[in-house]
Amino acid sequence: MKKGNGINTEKIVAAILLLFSITASFILLLIMLFIFDSGLPMFSKIGILDFLLGDKWIPAKNLFGAFPFIVTALIVTLGSVIIAVPLGVSCAIFLSEIAPRWARNIVRPAIELLSGIPSIIYGVFALVVIVNLVKISFNLATGETILAASIILAIMILPIIISISQDAIESVPRIYREGSYSMGATDWETISRVVVPAASPGIIAGIILAMGRAIGETMAVVLVIGNVEKLPMSFLSSGETLTSAILLEMGEAVVKSLHYNALFCLGIVPFIIVLIFSFLSSRLIAKTKTRFA
C-alpha cells in the first residue's frame, strides 16, 4: 500500500525536478531569444557589414558603425592578455613546482580573494590609481586610456589564468618529470622543456577563457577608458569598447528605437564570442584529461 503511493510521488517529484533542471537551458535559450529579438531588427535597416565595419557611430544620424568599438575591445583584451599571461603562468608554475607549503597557503587564498573582488571596486581603484599612474608615467593630458583598461583587466583575469594553468601543470604525470631529472636536467629545464609544453593545451584553455572574460567586462573598463567613440591609435589613446558603449548609451536610447536595437547588437558580439570561447576552452581541457590517461 505504502509502496504504491511512494512510487507515484517519486515519479511526480522526478518530473518536477526535471523541469527545474531544464531551467538553466531554458534561460540560456531565453537570453538568446530576447537579445536577438531586440538586436536583429537593426540588420534590416543597416546591413551587417555596415555594422561591423562602419567606423562612425552617431546615433543621431542613424549611423551605427561598430568597428571602433570592436577594435578597441580587441586591443584592450590583447593588452590585458600580454600583461596577465606571463605573470599568471609564472605564478601557476610557482604554485605547482616551486612553492613551499607556507607560501602556497598565502598565495592561493590571495588569488581567491582577487577573484572575488567586485568589478566596480576594480573600476574605482583603476580610476583613482592606475589612471593617474599612466598619466604621470607617459606625460599625457589624461590617463584614461586603453592601457589603463588593459592593466586593470589583467589584474581581473589573473585568477582564471593561474587557476586553470595550475590545474593543467599539476595534471602532467610525475613520470615525465622523473624522466627529465634522471637525465641530469635542472628544475627550470624540466619545467620549461617538458612540463609546460605538456600542459600547454590546458594553459591555452585558460587563456581563452580569460580572454572571454576580458571582452565581456564592463564596469572596470567604462570608468577608465575615456569613452571616445573613435578608432584608437595606440594603447595610449582613449577609446570605447562594445560593453562600455552599451552601458553609457542605454540610458539615452529611446526604447525600441533603432538606437536601442543597435545597442543590443553590440551585446550580441561579446555574447557569441564568450560562448565560442567557453566551448573551445572546455574541449581543450577535456583533451588534456585524455592525453594523460
Binding site: 531544464i22 545597442l263 543590443f264
Partner: peptide, 24 residues
C-alpha cells in the same frame, strides 16, 4: 546538456545579462 547549459550560462557577460534583464 544540462551541465553544458549551466557552464555556458555561467560564462555569459554581465552586461548581456543586463540587456536580457532589461528586455525580459
Amino acid at each position: 546538456l544540462i551541465r553544458m547549459s549551466a557552464d555556458s550560462l555561467n560564462a555569459v557577460p554581465s552586461i548581456v545579462f543586463g540587456l536580457f534583464g532589461l528586455a525580459l
